[in-house]
Design a protein around this nucleic acid. Structure first.
Length: 588
RNA sequence: GCGCCAAUAGCUCAGUUGGAUAGAGCAACUGCCUUCUAAGCAGUAGGUCGUAGGUUCGAUUCCUACUUGGCGUACCA
């Protein structure tokens, strides 16, 4: 919303620069593009135009040039409202924030939860794949980063106007699946989730762990697992029955976890189907001559054009590999729903895999293969090192959510707010969720991160609950404002000229730039952009409303104006919450 | 060996695409609850932005080399 103002000033100054150049030099040279920045401090205005770059061409010192331009612009009859400030080599502008606030207020009132959305990706269909769990164990912290990112990026792209299809590929076959099946066959005693009271995914996970323990001093274990996989591939009825039963348990458990964590999908794919895909595509490529065959019959792609080695696409016995399947799955997905862009949310360990995959798809000549993205995120480590399932240092997702929920509930009790909160259980789990999603999304996706459990359960500082708390405070204020006591204010019109404090100007500016934030987050597939924005605006708001009364402001019209500002802040943080999986709470 | 990614306060992280005095949170210390929710606000202290060159009027940001760490480099997934 500030863009228009920014452009107006930029064009005006560029125009004056050209006129000045023509006067001084006699002709119009090619001038460098004018940069627009934000001044570091509010006193310095709202827009900053550094003039260093013109010193040489115009043979004028930047501070002199700044005052020259100021004088020229101020002489113009037809110039935008706002004030020009001089600050050394910078020409700064204090914009007319009142008119921005007025426009903003009607726009937010009209667009409500759509405020901040844009149409930059309108008409674009995006498939995003994330989560992709194995069916041999429950979700852990690593999955949670994946899930949070997937959900958030999907929401951000939607807000930018894209049509988004969220897909999950369930890894429900393979030797690792057989391992838990085998252990169950041996040690399970027909235990079920019902008989044991253990959630399905955790029960299956228990046998996966059991297999590892057993295999440690049982050399034939691995071999038996391989044999079981072969039986599975032949469709052995007994194995299939067990497979279906145990997968059912896991999927039921995962569904519960997803539900609890606010994760959902538009479509599921299953590896037990997709592992058959891709072989014919590779053979087609072989016919076209884009791949080549070794004497032993295996099919390869030469990655010389992307400066990599060679990669096998079909084994010598003609069977598929992971890569083969992924090629086939991408193509199948495009047939199912013709996307313009496909995003894979997968850990950075697999960068190489996706470089190859994308190259192979391009080589096969699919037009949509130009817009494939690997949203590669870094590993989640613990303060004392890596998570290792064998050493039992894996942070279990369900357990973590439960712990955080309990802590949130304790906090509500301790503050004696149980009666003031609608539903204590729901509020507690929403706080837990907000804490987790914010903690995970705050960090730039590409970077490895350290998950500090002690820190994640702290609700102080730069955390999800801090943001939720701001939302709850504002909501509480707005509820009070609904009282008859404020009836006279309800009838008044919003007068933006009363919002003259520096913090008020800064708040309006932040509100006005929200859409740009959403666009930048979308362009970079980076929810942390939204997180930083939310924290900045919340912190600014906290300070402002700590220092300045709203409902008890010095005049009724000031009450009305500040309420308008407060309402706008609430709408914007609510909208931003929805992009990063932080539940909004009207009270907490 | 080769490739990719990273390195900013004691710790965890930002840094708006090259600009003004590099910012938060946590931890430490100090104030502020008869006043719109103290899950809060304000303040103090904490930095050769891994090292060395280069490009530029200007570099935490771009380039090169090096150091350190992570991850890859399977006819595994």
């Amino acid at each position: 919303m500030l863009e228009a103002v920014r452009e107006t000033w930029k064009n005006l100054i560029e125009q004056q620069l050209n006129l000045y150049a023509a006067e001084v030099l006699g002709d119009i040279p090619e001038l460098p593009a004018l940069a627009v920045q934000s001044p570091p401090k509010p006193e310095l205005g709202d827009l900053a135009f550094p003039l260093f770059a013109y010193a040489k061409v115009l043979r004028t010192a930047p501070p002199k040039l700044a005052s020259e331009l100021k004088a020229r612009i101020e002489k113009l009859d037809d110039r935008p409202s706002g004030e020009i400030l001089l600050s050394g080599p910078y020409l700064n502008v204090r914009i007319d924030m009142g008119s921005v606030a007025t426009a903003l207020s009607s726009r937010i009132a009209e667009e409500k939860e759509r405020y901040g959305s844009s149409e930059v990706l309108k008409g674009k269909k995006v498939t995003i794949e994330f989560s992709c769990p194995n069916t041999n164990k429950p979700l852990h912290l690593g999955h949670m980063r994946n899930d949070s990112l997937g959900e958030s990026v999907a929401a951000i792209l939607k807000a930018n106007g894209a049509e988004v299809r969220k897909v999950n590929l369930i890894n429900n076959r393979g030797v690792h699946i057989c391992k838990s099946m085998l252990a169950y066959q041996k040690f399970g005693n027909n235990e079920t989730p019902e008989s044991s009271g253990i959630k399905g995914d955790h029960l299956v996970g228990k046998y996966y762990v059991k297999f590892a323990a057993w295999a440690k001093d049982e050399p034939i274990a691995e071999k038996q697992a391989q044999e079981m996989l072969q039986k599975w591939e032949r469709g052995d009825p007994e194995v299939m029955e067990l497979w279906e039963k145990m997968n059912g348990w896991t999927l039921q458990g995962l569904a519960e976890s997803y539900e609890k964590m606010g994760i959902s999908f538009d479509a599921y794919y299953y590896e037990s189907e997709t592992y058959k895909y891709g072989k014919d595509e590779i053979l087609k490529g072989l016919e076209k001559g884009v791949f080549y065959q070794e004497e032993d019959g295996s099919v390869w792609v030469d990655l010389e054009p992307i400066k990599l080695d060679k990669k096998v696409l079909l084994r010598k016995d003609g069977t598929s590999l992971y890569m083969t399947q992924d090629v086939g799955t991408a193509i199948t997905r495009h047939k199912d729903w013709p996307f313009d862009s496909l995003i894979y949310v997968v850990a950075s360990e697999q960068r190489y895999h996706f470089m190859v995959l994308f190259y192979v798809l391009q080589t096969l000549g699919y037009s949509w293969a130009d817009d494939l993205h690997h949203l590669s995120y870094g590993m989640v480590n613990l303060p004392d090192g890596k998570m290792k399932s064998r050493e039992g240092t894996v942070v279990d997702a369900d357990e973590l959510v439960d712990t955080l929920t309990t802590l949130a509930r304790d906090e509500i009790r301790e503050k004696e707010r149980e009666d003031l909160v609608d539903d204590v259980d729901k509020t507690s789990s929403d706080i837990a969720l907000g804490a987790l999603n914010y903690y995970l999304l705050q960090v730039s996706p590409t970077k490895d991160m350290i998950f500090n459990p002690a820190e994640s359960i702290s609700f102080n500082g730069n955390t999800g609950p801090y943001l939720q708390y701001m939302g709850a405070r504002i909501s509480s204020m707005l509820r009070k404002y609904q009282d008859d006591e404020f009836a006279d204010c309800h009838a008044m019109k919003f007068d933006s000229s009363l919002l003259t404090l520096s913090d008020e100007r800064e708040l309006i500016k932040q509100l006005a730039r929200y859409q740009e934030v959403v666009e930048r987050a979308g362009g970079a597939y980076d929810p942390s952009v939204v997180c930083s924005y939310l924290y900045d605006i919340s912190k600014l708001f906290s300070r402002w409303y700590h220092d300045n009364p709203v409902l008890k402001a010095s005049s009724r019209s000031l009450v009305r104006s500040r309420i308008e500002l407060v309402s706008m802040v609430l709408q914007v943080i609510k909208n931003a919450f929805s992009l990063i999986g932080v539940p909004f709470l009207a009270s907490m």
